[in-house]
Design a binder for these strands. Structure first.
Length: 465
RNA sequence: GGCGUCGUGGCCAAGUGGUAAGGCAAGGGUCUGCAAAACCCUCAUUCACGGGUUCAAAUCCCGUCGACGCCUCCA
C-alpha cells in the first residue's frame, strides 16, 4: 500500500487515485530565463522517481510539467540582451529539456507553456470575475479577491489576519485587500502583451498553472508537486483560483521537495551560490546527481558539498560493482551460497517496495540495493557462474532502473578503445616477464589519461574514469 | 513577529513505542608481484538539552536552545 505525505493535511496518507489505476500529476516546472542549477535538478529527479515508482507499481501516470515562458524576469533579461522574450524563453526551454535528458529524467507526458494557453487563461479570469472572485482595477490589472475564498491559506497554514500584520506586505494602490494577487497585469509601454477584455497585458504568475492544469488534466488531479518554496504564495493561490472557479477540490495530494543546500543555505539565483546542471555533469555522471537525491529524504534539505558529492560518487561505483560479470573460469557456487543469493533477491525486492511505499523512502530503498550488491559480489567471489549470477543481477538492474539509475560505465571515444586494448595486451606480456616497474608505469600513465586498470586472475579489465 | 520542517556516530542518512538500517571516511585482515576492486572484522550503552507519560521512548507530551524554508521572485 503506497503512502504519501500530503502537505495539505500534514499527514502521511494512503494513496487513492481519483480513477483506479491512473494518476494525474502536475509538477511546477521552471521559469525559463537562465541556466538551470542542481537545485532544479533535484526537484526534477524527485518527481521522476515518484513517477517511475508509480509506473512500476502499475499506475498509468499522466505527468504534466509546465514552462513559465512569460514573466517579469524573462522580460527584463530579454530587454538586457535585446532579444525577443519568447525567443529567449524558447531557447531556455530547449536548454532545460536537454538538461533533463542528460539527467535521465523521463520526459513529462506534456509540457504546456503559458504563451500557448492565453485564451484559456483569459476565459478562466472572466469566470472568476463573473463569480465575484476577482475584479478589474481601473489601470487594467485584474486581482483575485482573497476575502471571497473562505478557506484561503489552508495549504500554507496562514490566516489572512496574520499575513496582513506582516511588515513587508505593502498595499497595492489598486487592490481591495493587501493579499489580493494579480491574475492579469496591464502591459507597461514597450512590453510584450496579449489583448484581453481588460486591455493589453499578460497573466500573473499563478493563474497559468490553474489554467494549464484544467487544460491538460481537468478540474481535479491526484498529485500536485513542486519545491517547498512554492507552497506560499504560488500553490496557495493556485488552489484559491482553481477551487473558486470549479467549486471542486483541486488536488488531492500535495507533494513538496526540500531545498538543496549549498554551504548551509538554499541554492538560489539571488544568493548567487549556484552550480549549473551542465557544470555538474561535466564533472560527474547523472547517476551521481541522482544518488545525492536518493541518499536523503525528498522532503528534507539536501546537503550538497564536496564531501557529499564524493560519497555519492563512491556509492555509484559500489552499485556498479554488482553488475561486473562472473569470472569465465568460475566453477559454480556451493549450495549454501546459491540459496543465500536466491533469498537475497527476495529480501531486496520486499525491502525495496516497503521502503518506496513508505512515502518514497529512497534512502531505505537504496540500502536494499547495497545489500543485494553485497550478496552478488560475495557470490562472484565464491565461483558463481554467469548463469547463477544473472537472476540477482537482473533484479538489481530492474530496481536500480526504478530509481532511474543507469549504472552505465562512462564511454570514451571509440577510436581509443582498440589502442587501449593493445596496450593492455602488451602489458600482459610485460607482466608475464615480471617487469613490474614497466607494467606499473603503463598503469599509472593510463590512469592519468582517465583509464583505470584492474588486474584479476582472469586478466586485466579497464574502464574510463 | 507569524506559519512550517527539523535536530541520530568524523560526514551523508534510515528508523516514529520494544531496545540504533545503509553508505562515505578511518583502522585491521583476506586476495594481489604491487595496486585497484571485492569480501571479512572494528567503528553511537546512545539519538540537541531539561522535564513528563509508559513495564518499555531516538520514537508520544510539555518546555528550552539551535538550524533551515516560507511570509518578496524562487525547484
Amino acid at each position: 500500500m503506497l503512502k504519501i505525505y500530503n502537505t495539505l493535511t500534514r499527514k502521511t496518507e494512503e494513496f487513492q487515485p481519483l480513477e483506479p489505476g491512473k494518476v494525474k500529476m502536475y509538477v511546477c516546472g521552471v521559469t525559463v530565463y537562465n541556466d538551470a542549477h542542481v537545485g532544479h535538478a533535484m526537484s526534477a529527479i524527485v518527481f521522476d522517481i515518484i513517477r517511475r515508482y508509480m509506473e512500476y507499481r502499475g499506475y498509468e501516470v499522466r505527468h504534466v510539467m509546465n514552462y513559465t515562458d512569460v514573466d517579469d524576469k524573462i522580460i527584463n533579461r530579454a530587454n538586457a540582451l535585446g532579444e525577443d522574450p519568447l525567443k529567449l524563453s524558447q531557447r531556455y526551454i530547449e536548454d532545460y529539456t536537454n538538461d533533463l535528458k542528460s539527467l535521465n529524467v523521463l520526459p513529462a507526458t506534456s509540457n504546456p507553456q503559458v504563451s500557448k494557453t492565453m485564451p484559456l487563461i483569459i476565459k478562466f479570469i472572466e469566470g472568476l470575475i463573473e463569480k465575484g472572485h476577482a475584479y478589474a482595477a481601473p489601470n487594467g490589472d485584474v486581482y483575485f479577491r482573497v476575502t471571497s475564498d473562505a478557506d484561503y491559506g489552508k495549504l500554507s497554514g496562514r490566516k489572512l489576519e496574520d499575513m496582513q500584520a506582516g511588515a513587508r506586505i505593502e498595499v497595492g494602490e489598486q487592490k481591495e485587500h493587501p493579499m489580493d494577487f494579480a491574475l492579469w497585469k496591464a502591459a507597461k509601454p514597450g512590453e510584450i502583451f496579449w489583448e484581453s477584455p481588460w486591455g493589453k497585458g499578460r497573466p500573473g504568475w499563478h493563474i497559468e498553472c490553474s489554467a494549464m492544469n484544467l487544460a491538460e488534466l481537468g478540474e481535479q488531479i491526484d498529485i500536485h508537486g513542486g519545491g517547498n518554496d512554492l507552497i506560499f504564495p504560488h500553490h496557495e493561490n493556485e488552489i484559491a483560483q482553481s477551487e473558486s472557479y470549479t467549486g471542486k477540490e483541486f488536488a488531492r495530494y500535495w507533494i513538496h521537495n526540500g531545498m538543496l543546500q549549498l554551504g548551509g543555505e538554499k541554492m538560489s539565483k539571488s544568493l548567487g551560490n549556484i552550480v549549473n546542471i551542465k557544470e555538474f555533469l561535466s564533472k560527474h555522471s547523472a547517476d551521481v546527481m541522482r544518488m545525492l537525491v536518493l541518499n536523503g529524504t525528498y522532503r528534507a534539505p539536501l546537503m550538497f558539498n564536496d564531501e557529499t558529492v564524493a560519497a555519492a560518487e563512491r556509492n555509484v561505483e559500489r552499485l556498479k560493482s554488482a553488475l561486473k560479470p562472473a569470472s569465465p573460469s568460475a566453477k559454480g557456487l556451493p549450495a549454501d551460497i546459491l540459496s543465500a543469493l536466491a533469498a537475497a533477491i527476495e529480501t531486496a525486492k520486499t525491502n525495496f517496495t516497503e521502503a518506496m511505499d513508505n512515502d518514497f523512502n529512497t534512502a531505505s530503498a537504496i540500502a536494499a540495493l547495497f545489500e543485494l550488491s553485497k550478496s552478488i559480489n560475495t557470490a562472484r567471489d565464491n565461483e558463481a557462474t554467469a548463469d547463477q549470477l544473472q537472476p540477482a543481477q537482473d533484479t538489481f538492474r530492474e530496481l536500480a532502473g526504478v530509481l532511474g539509475l543507469t549504472l552505465e560505465e562512462k564511454k570514451g571515444s571509440g577510436d581509443a578503445n582498440k589502442f587501449i586494448d593493445l596496450l593492455i595486451e602488451v602489458r600482459s606480456e610485460v607482466r608475464k616477464q615480471k617487469l613490474w616497474a614497466l607494467s606499473d608505469l603503463i598503469r599509472d600513465k593510463l590512469k592519468e589519461l582517465g583509464v583505470s586498470l584492474e588486474d584479476t586472475k582472469d586478466g586485466t579489465t579497464w574502464k574510463w574514469t
